[in-house]
Design a protein around this nucleic acid. Structure first.
Lengths: 233, 233
DNA sequence: ATAGGACATATTTTCGAAAATATATTCTGC
DNA sequence: GCAGAATATATTTTCGAAAATATGTCCTAT
């Protein structure tokens, strides 16, 4: 196990359990903890410097997020990556993302337009600055996530937004998996710009259609470059 | 606090924590634990006969389900019931349920048709047998849940089905809330039958439209009879 | 009388040991 | 030599005490 070392405590949350939940989540999404890998308490204790109980609480949280699977009396493991799971996540994301984007286009005001444009601008600048494969770069990932968050930020449904966040992270794990084996990233700057323009123009049909394609092609790319890592058909 | 007393251990799961999660969930959905009520460890320990740690794990699970809210360093409480939350749940349920029902109609075979018909039949028999307000009856609730589960059972998406189950439970809590104040239940047997017939006839548009109305009117009924219990707006 | 601080109490959060369970190893009988 | 029981080891799960934090009460100064 090569998890993140013991950093400064309480980086993300007030309680240690919440903090460790976030750190474990990051390690899993970034594939520093490999899919299917058993999460044994002795090793976790060493890596995160917390007790059984606290780690157990964190793992329980992540189980609900679909990033960890629990086998009763047999411990926890990082959720495996499978073709079926990727397809499931992709189709569900498309459904949720289209709904939230439609609502945002209907509800969003000036602030929303500004947020969408500025997060895209930042993403573009980062891509200019970073040569080659920027997908695995943390700075790019944050900016990328923020752009997509801005797009749906006026969806006005805490429930849907929560589901979306969870699915986005599960999908990001697959993206990170394929990034390890992709020689050059496909040019997504054009895709993102087109989505932004359609959204700002309040063209719901076009914007949702572009998002659909965007999510779908991202998923296809994972299959293309990481299929040898996915179990099942 | 009037939670379920200490029953036979390990009724639902192999581990105590999973078992207590289920029992706590039932108590919350049935409103035996009231919305907004603080969930203090001393009281829970007494009611469920488990230690801090085990209870903590259960509460963390339920927080992910949206039935419990956690305020860091200030403990847990039963999720409050609000108009906004009910609206959010209702709209999200409609989206998810329509998607799953459409897929089931497309995918379902003979076994699916049989499951839909037989679960509806059982529901009808139970309604005949039980006089008056059967909504709060556990037997009716199980049969009702099983009918709706059968309808969407061929949706072929573990993720969507999981989300659906979680939303169904959150909505059931609101139904139980309004059932306390509803003098006579509206006749739902006709609605359920119409949904079944449209589904079996593979009339996706009609079936999804009926499900939409069904969920919407259930939600309206909650507002009608329990609005005085909902905070906000 | 009241705001602010110091103390006391209540409650949550974390820990490491003990119990329960699963996995690996050894031993026995055939 | 091998299957199956018996034992030993590894790991998870649960517990109650101890630490950390929040809440309530009392006292003092203005």
């Amino acid at each position: 196990m090569t998890a993140s070392a013991v950093k400064s405590r309480k980086e993300f949350g007030k309680t240690l359990a919440v903090d460790i939940t976030h750190r474990l989540r990051q390690d899993i999404v970034a594939c520093r903890l490999k899919p299917g890998e058993p999460l044994k308490f002795d090793a976790l204790k060493l890596a995160f410097g917390a007790s059984f109980t606290t780690l157990r609480e964190a793992l329980t949280s992540l189980t609900a997020d679909g990033l960890v699977v629990a086998e009763e009396q047999r411990g926890f493991r990082v959720a495996p990556v499978t073709s079926d799971d990727l397809i499931d996540i992709t189709q569900t994301r498309i459904l949720i993302e289209i709904e939230l984007l439609s609502r945002s286009i209907a509800n969003g005001g000036d602030d929303w337009e500004i947020a969408v444009m500025s997060t895209l601008h930042r993403l573009g600048r980062i891509e200019e600055r970073l040569p080659g494969n920027h997908v695995e770069n943390p700075e790019w990932q944050i900016a990328h996530r923020q752009f997509h968050e801005a797009l749906v930020s006026c969806g006005r449904s805490p429930t849907l937004l929560g589901i979306r966040t969870s699915l986005f992270e599960r999908a990001e794990r697959y993206r990170n998996l394929s990034a390890m084996f992709r020689p050059q990233p496909r040019d997504k700057v054009g895709e993102h710009r087109a989505i932004m323009q359609a959204a700002i123009a309040r063209d719901t049909n076009l914007a949702t259609s572009l998002i659909d394609q965007h999510i779908r092609s991202t998923s296809d790319n994972v299959v293309k470059y990481a299929s040898h890592l996915l179990t099942e058909s």
